[in-house]
Every structure is written in structure tokens, then in C-alpha cells.
């Protein structure tokens, strides 16, 4: 790692101020950023740790919306969202491993927008609102491609608002080495229709599979997606799977997610 200064503000306001320094970088749980720093692939002048900001932590319910502080740990979501949004809790409880879940945060995951991360699929499928220190961003506008989001430099995700669906499930097929999603599919059924978000599969990051959404909105059953091909997206091809394999998995996992959602 290159050398940098380290600050750990107590409030969002102080964090925002600290992030105005040139080449300052926010540090959530660090589970992706720290390995990146170790490889000397980033050279921040100052790391602004968000772990000391209590106002960004916690899970609470606001009517039909689950509100999760941006600094909330995966482990906390796994525990505290269970009663309200079990599919989301299950997703959080299956990210990485227990140690990762005890440091990694929802805000950090969404800000990083790794194309194979789990949380982006939940946020997109839930039609979540990403709340930052300065504005609210609809999930449909937030994810802008691999490792790319609508966040401006220095902008911090303070909370995430996820409308609670009638039924939902997330099914992940793990890349054998990293255990990130080779493909992950989050299906959420709302009164207004079904949303299907796919992670792990596309060079453009998480995306909505609209054909499946239409089919499932008409008929919420695993059979409804049979034969559908997720062909539109620019699918990843790598050592762990061809684009065709990923396309196939999207269909299989979507059907399984629908079955699991019940």
C-alpha cells in the first residue's frame, strides 16, 4: 500500500468535508478497497473511514419501505431485515463469508458496484432509492455500468430505501474461486408488477431482465420463464463461464428464484 492519512469522522457532515480533500477516498467496510490498496491499484491521499458514523447505521421500517443505513453491516442486515424482507436478509447473510459480513456495508457495496456483487441486484429489483448526503437517486438511474454509478466524487450513500415486495427471492450461483456471483438473480413481486435483476453476468453490471419481468408479471411461476433467453445484455465471458453459459444460468436461476419466492 502507498501511504495515506486516515480519518474517522463521527458525522456525515464531517465525512463530506473530509472527502473534499484532493484524492480523498471514502472507506466503507474496506473488504474490496483494502485488497485493492494492497495491490497498489489506488493511491488516495486520505482515507475517510465511514465506520464511526452512527447515523448511517441500522435497519428500520418506514411503512412498506425498509430503510437501511449506508454504513450497516451485511451481518446486521442478515439479522435485522429477516422479519421484514427475508429475501434481502438471506442475500446479506450469504455475501462473502462471516468475516466479510462483519465489515462490509450495503453502502460500500452499492458505491463500488462490482458487477458480481449481490446487493446491486436487490437494490435494482426492489426499485430502491439510494439516499446520499445530497440527494435521492432511483436505482434505475443509479447503476451505470461495471464499477460505475451516479455518485459524484465525495458523495456518500447515507441510506438505502427498499420497498418491501409481496414475494421475493435471490438465487446465486457462485464463481468457484471468489464465491462472488457468477450469476445472481433477484426476483421481486410487487402489486405493480415483477422486477428481475441480474448480477454477475454482464459487462455492464447489474441489469433488469425485462422479458422475464413481463412474463412473470403476467404469470408468476417458474414455468413462465421457461424458454426465455436473456440475450440482450452484453454478457461476461471468462475462465469460469462463457456468455452462453451465463445466459443459460440466468434462465435457470430466475426460475429457481421464482420457485423459492413461492
Amino acid at each position: 500500500m502507498y501511504a495515506f492519512d486516515f480519518v474517522r469522522p463521527k458525522t456525515v457532515a464531517d465525512a463530506v468535508k473530509a472527502l473534499q480533500a484532493e484524492d480523498a477516498q471514502a472507506l466503507g467496510g474496506g473488504q474490496t478497497l483494502i485488497p485493492t490498496l494492497k495491490q497498489r491499484l489506488a493511491q488516495p491521499s486520505v482515507l475517510v473511514s465511514l465506520t464511526g458514523i452512527d447515523e448511517m447505521k441500522g435497519v428500520c421500517r418506514d411503512g412498506d419501505v425498509l430503510v437501511i443505513g449506508g454504513g450497516t453491516l451485511h451481518a446486521t442486515v442478515a439479522r435485522e431485515a429477516r422479519a421484514h424482507y427475508p429475501a434481502l436478509a438471506a442475500l446479506a447473510g450469504n455475501i462473502g463469508d462471516p468475516a466479510v459480513r462483519n465489515r462490509g456495508t450495503i453502502g460500500g457495496s452499492l458505491a463500488n458496484n462490482d458487477p458480481s456483487a449481490c446487493y446491486p441486484s436487490a437494490a435494482l429489483a426492489s426499485g430502491a432509492t439510494i439516499v446520499t448526503n445530497s440527494r435521492k437517486i432511483a436505482a434505475d438511474d443509479y447503476f451505470q455500468g461495471m464499477f460505475t454509478t451516479a455518485l459524484e466524487p465525495g458523495e456518500i450513500i447515507t441510506s438505502v430505501r427498499l420497498p418491501i415486495p409481496q414475494k421475493a427471492a435471490y438465487v446465486k450461483f457462485e464463481q468457484p474461486a471468489s464465491r462472488f456471483a457468477l450469476v445472481g438473480v433477484f426476483v421481486a413481486k410487487y402489486a405493480g408488477g415483477v422486477r428481475v435483476a441480474v448480477t454477475g453476468a454482464s459487462n455492464n453490471g447489474v441489469f433488469r431482465w425485462t422479458e422475464a419481468e413481463a412474463a412473470l408479471s403476467a404469470n408468476f411461476s417458474a414455468g413462465a420463464v421457461k424458454g426465455l433467453k436473456a440475450t440482450a445484455a452484453d454478457l461476461i465471458a471468462d475462465l469460469h463461464g462463457t456468455a452462453a453459459y451465463r445466459a443459460h444460468l440466468i434462465g435457470v436461476l430466475t426460475a429457481r428464484a421464482v420457485a423459492a419466492a413461492g
Binding site: 474461486a177 471468489s178 475462465l239 469460469h240
Partner: peptide
Amino acid sequence: LVTGSYMDYAMPR
């Protein structure tokens, strides 16, 4: 070496 770390070299767990 494409599989030069545990991110791509799958160790049995």
C-alpha cells in the same frame, strides 16, 4: 497467469 489469486484459483472449501 489468469488464476493468480484466490479470486480466480478455486481452492476447495
